[in-house]
Design a protein around this nucleic acid. Structure first.
Length: 753
DNA sequence: TGACTGTGGGTTTTT
DNA sequence: CCCACAGTCA
């Protein structure tokens, strides 16, 4: 028996050594799931299977890379030949080879969500539909879930349920939009994220040149990580590859129903239940020992998830000792939350000797990062924000990439629309519309339609000039590398000159971003190292680069260096930190107001909270703010219901959500049915903003009872200074540090008799 | 016909 | 707060 097997507990070892036949591993948080997966693959290789016959589908490219690195430690560089990657990236790789069999160019563009939405909104405009009724986001998610359920436009039209849902939503023509959308993508030689799955399914289904057998024979061993987050379509593809007459069914899926947090994207836990039905002779292993977190944290997590009805029973336990109790920080405002978290971080660094990389701040929405960034910067603590608007989504970066995309695939209409008049070259909306109409009439893409369209001579000349420029890029791309072309295009297009002309601070940073994109491309071209866990790319062409970045995600960014990690709770899945702050624990934020309408929504938010707190190894701190700015508006929210679901035994003493109440502050109207108890015990600071009328600052005097939007009710103890510099010392009994000094010039206070 | 400016509306999580 | 659009000016 090999050495590495000794590092495993009994259940883990069984899961690793049962390499043939269907296997389901139910793995709780911190239960050594990655270790099982990597050793299992190593074990398969050791048993004599060529690595390229193993397909491992992971959730992020980063985890695939990490996995390969760990496999390499056992079996050496053979690990690099394992097909490990995300569903999207592995399937894109296959589609590049097979695209022409289903009528796409092998250099097809991958449309990101922004591109998809832009296509949809131009279709909505063409059909003269109301933008309000036909909300782009709603339509996009409608189309996305249809694709993810393997319902192409034609079938969509036949499904009574979908059609009646659409007419109930007063959007009877969604079907038409969907049909046009598919045609438009095809015409542009583009696949959206869902297409990478959808088109692959149809490739295997239609089976031209018997590609199905090719891939069935190729992938003899399948592994799927984070199986609870796969959708119907992903599972359908897995079954295509693995479930057929004569298959040896060597498939292993690993997942945890309690950590399913992508239902909004079509993920369904039912896949786990179906898996049990679909594969007879299935062996199930449950990993229940948590090696990551101390007992207080594990108990809190168990208690929280216990509030969900739907779950596979398991008992997660830890041997790491009780550890530190969970701390809750109550802040009055979002900015105070930021400050107090930053203070705690400093404290933990000095008192508990943590380094920056031991610490993470997790939030529900990316927009929350800003305030933490502000305070960390102020305190000179290095941090890194993952997620949010990524580098590649910045306008100026997308602009340059637009030119590059066109040079690789001139059919790409979204790229064309983006750059045809940027920098300004006098080709405006009217012209663009004419091209688009012509394209529709002649059933060609816009690039070709530019040849047929009839326009005034001046405009024609401008169009010809643009087309010639892109044509030159296309020609040049055939002979030079990606960097050469990108630098050439950046200059020739006038992009650099335009950015240089803008000397504002923002303009400067835009130029910087374009420069660093170019640097990145240079790095891609010059990189001659074989990175452990990476494919060896010898192709330095522009096409190769564009394909490389299309599926780049924030998770894949290198996280080297000693910094605090700031990320959304979703992005934190699979990671662990000694100390974790889960912030913004307020009703309407976490749980999100979008999810609060349905019980399933709440259960998903709860799983998300479960994921968040189980990232912590030793220290867990939770926080909420009574008021925060959202979309430029003030909002007051009660503490999250999830805080109530943690046993008091696991929390630092003195925690309670309620505070002695003032009489004058109205409790917020309770929008959630059946939470009478909550309304009683929480939300004391909730103030009806509409009724709040600040009194003139000159009227504020000692001894008055006043109301403040963030701090609630208080008594003015002292007023000093004069004129504009008057400062009131006010005691707000409902908050943590009750004595506050407010500049009267800015303070909004309502006198309450 | 294109460029610019003001208004109004929506508002989560990710490949 | 940020983006998209409509309306206006050149």
């Amino acid at each position: 028996m090999q050495d590495y097997l000794n590092e495993l507990n009994d259940v883990q070892r069984d899961a690793v050594t049962t390499i043939n036949g269907p296997v389901l591993v139910v793995a709780g948080p911190g239960s050594g799931k990655t270790r099982v997966l990597t050793y299992r693959i190593a074990n398969i290789i050791e048993s004599g299977v060529p690595p390229w016959e193993i397909l491992a589908l992971t959730f992020t490219n980063k985890s695939a890379k990490e996995m390969k690195e760990r496999i390499a430690k056992v079996v050496g560089s053979r690990a690099n030949n394992v097909w490990a990657g995300t569903f999207h990236s592995i399937f894109a790789r296959i589609l590049r080879v097979e695209a022409e069999k289903i009528g796409y160019p092998s250099s097809f563009t991958i449309y990101d969500s922004q591109d998809s939405k832009s296509v949809i909104s131009s279709i909505i405009k063409e059909l003269n539909l109301s933008r309000d009724r036909y909300n782009v986001n709603a339509i996009a998610s409608r189309i996305s879930s249809a694709k993810s359920s393997l319902i192409p436009p034609k079938l969509y039209g036949q499904m009574k349920e979908l059609i009646s849902q659409d007419s109930m939503n007063k959007r009877p023509r969604v079907h038409e939009v969907y049909t046009k959308y598919m045609a438009r993508c095809k015409r542009a030689g583009a696949m959206d994220f869902d297409d990478l799955l959808f088109q692959l399914y149809y490739l295997l289904h239609k089976n031209p040149d018997n590609v199905l057998d090719k891939y069935r024979n190729k992938f003899k061993y399948l592994l799927v990580d984070e199986f609870q987050d796969t959708n119907y379509l992903q599972y359908a593809i897995i079954k295509k590859l693995c479930k057929y007459e004569g298959s040896s069914h060597n498939i292993c899926v690993v997942g945890d129903d309690a950590q399913s947090i992508y239902a909004f994207r079509g993920a369904t836990v039912d896949n786990i239940l179906d898996f049990e039905k679909d594969y007879k002779g299935l062996k199930t292993f449950k990993l229940e020992q948590n090696y990551r977190s101390t007992t207080h944290i594990v108990q809190a997590a168990n208690s929280v998830i216990g509030h969900n009805k739907k779950q596979i029973k398991k008992k997660i336990w830890s041997h790491k000792g009780d550890g530190t109790k969970i701390r809750v920080i109550k802040a009055v405002s979002d900015s105070e939350e930021g400050k107090r978290i930053a203070d705690s971080i400093i404290e933990q660094k000095t008192r508990r000797h943590l380094s920056n990389s031991d610490i993470a701040v997790l939030y529900r929405t990316n927009a929350q990062s800003r305030i933490f960034e502000e305070y960390l910067r102020r305190y000179n603590i290095p941090y890194k924000v993952f997620g949010g608007t990524s580098f590649y989504q910045r306008k100026e970066v997308k602009d340059l990439i637009g030119y590059l995309r066109l040079a690789v695939n001139p059919q790409d209409e979204e790229a064309l629309k983006r750059v045809i008049n940027y920098p300004k070259r006098g080709i405006g909306n009217t012209t663009l519309e004419k091209i688009s109409t012509k394209a529709g009439e002649n059933e060609v893409n816009m690039w070709e339609a530019m040849d047929y369209v009839e326009l005034p001579a001046g405009t024609m000349k401008k169009l010809k000039g643009f087309k010639a420029m892109i044509g030159a890029f296309i020609q040049r791309a055939k002979t030079v590398d990606a960097y050469d072309l990108a630098a050439y295009a950046a200059r020739q297009s006038g992009l650099i000159a335009t950015l240089k002309a803008d000397t504002s601070v923002e303009g400067l940073s835009r130029l910087e971003n374009v420069t660093s994109l170019l640097d990145g491309i240079k790095e891609f071209v010059e990189n001659d190292e074989v990175e452990e866990g990476q494919e060896l790319t010898t192709d330095k062409s522009l096409a190769s680069y564009i394909q490389n970045i299309a599926l780049h995600t924030n998770q894949d960014e290198d996280d080297e260096g000693n910094h605090i990690t700031l990320m959304s709770t979703h992005s934190a899945k699979g990671l662990e930190f000694k100390s974790v702050f889960v912030v913004g624990l307020e009703e309407n934020l976490f749980p999100s107001f979008m999810a609060m309408k349905t019980p399933q929504g709440i259960e998903e938010e709860r799983r998300l909270f479960y994921v968040a707190i189980t990232r912590a190894e030793e220290i867990l701190t939770l926080s909420f703010a009574n008021s925060r700015y959202r979309h430029g508006k003030h909002s007051n929210n009660s503490p999250s219901r999830f805080l109530n679901e943690i046993p008091l035994d696991n929390m630092e003493s003195g925690f309670s959500l309620s505070k002695p109440t003032g009489t004058a502050v109205r409790p917020q109207r309770s929008g959630v049915a059946g939470n009478f108890k909550q309304a009683r015990t929480q939300a004391k600071l909730s103030i009806n903003v509409a009724d709040f009328k600040p009194s003139p600052s000159s009227a504020i005097q000692e001894g008055q009872k006043v109301l403040h939007l963030k701090f609630g009710e208080g008594v003015v103890e002292q007023v000093d200074g004069r004129n504009d510099k008057k400062v009131a010392t006010i005691n707000f009994p409902q908050i943590d540090n009750p004595k506050r000094r407010l500049m009267l010039k800015f303070a909004k206070l309502q006198i309450m008799e």
